[in-house]
């Protein structure tokens, strides 16, 4: 179970964009977080994935409070999240070919990289694309690689921050299909952040509006 308890966060202590928000993702549950752009939902997603230190509040993973944020979080805690961001161009190191991009979490943890071809196949990337660098592939193909990277360590939670906002309908459906297939097989929980109500309601078990979250 992933619990966000009374989280206040932002980039300026005097004007936090997230104030006293609590949210729970149960084991295997898919929660959609719906809100207008700029409301602070991406900040909350980064707090949930232990990538942003909140000003106040707690993140609790299976009953155990997060011990820190970013590099201060124990490796086991931060690798239990797979994160996918909105803009694939900014989420990919421009120098790494897609195969290296996908293998990066495996290398960082000293694990064998022979899982890469299988990961690539899972997200529908063909072998000829793996040798290319980010500027040589389309947004959709790059986002597929970013999703493969997020799945590489078999995380217990996936945090998808506007994962499909830049993508066409077919790629959106394909990526959501990959996430769901992984969740069925692994029982991972999902926090999907977005502004498309139709998409989130179709995708997730329950959808929470930003307004209800902040007024509660």
């Amino acid at each position: 179970m992933l619990e966000l308890r009374d989280v206040t966060a932002g980039y300026d202590r005097r004007a936090p964009v997230v104030r006293g928000v609590s949210l729970t993702v149960r084991v295997g549950e898919a929660v959609g977080l719906l809100g207008p752009s700029g409301c602070g939902k991406s900040t909350l997603a980064r707090v949930a994935a232990l990538l942003h230190r909140p000003d106040a509040g707690q993140v609790v993973l299976d009953g155990e409070p997060a011990a820190g944020w970013r590099h201060r979080a124990p490796r086991a805690q931060r690798t239990s999240f797979g994160v996918v961001f909105q803009q694939p161009r900014l989420s990919a190191d421009p120098r790494l070919p897609l195969a290296r991009l996908i293998a990066e979490p495996l290398r960082a943890n000293g694990r064998p990289v022979d899982a890469v071809p299988e990961l690539a196949e899972t997200v529908g990337l063909t072998a000829d694309l793996l040798g290319r660098r980010p500027h040589e592939v389309s947004d959709g193909q790059l986002q597929r690689a970013c999703l493969a990277r997020a799945l590489a360590l078999r995380p217990r939670w996936l945090v998808c921050d506007e994962m499909t906002a830049m993508l066409d309908a077919s790629t959106t459906a394909a990526l959501v299909g990959v996430v769901e297939a992984y969740r069925r097989e692994s029982g991972a929980g999902l926090l999907a952040v977005g502004h498309d109500r139709v998409l989130l309601e179709r995708w997730c078990d329950r959808t929470v509006g930003w307004a209800e979250l902040t007024s509660a």
């Binding site: 990538l51 590099h71 990919a92």
Partner: peptide, 22 residues
């Protein structure tokens, strides 16, 4: 501040690895 550094941290990369590799 790029998301790819966030992704590397989430993938378990150490400070040293982020500095040297990314």
């Amino acid at each position: 501040s790029r998301p790819y550094v966030d992704a590397a941290i989430s993938g378990g990369a150490s400070r040293h690895r982020v500095a040297v590799r990314h």
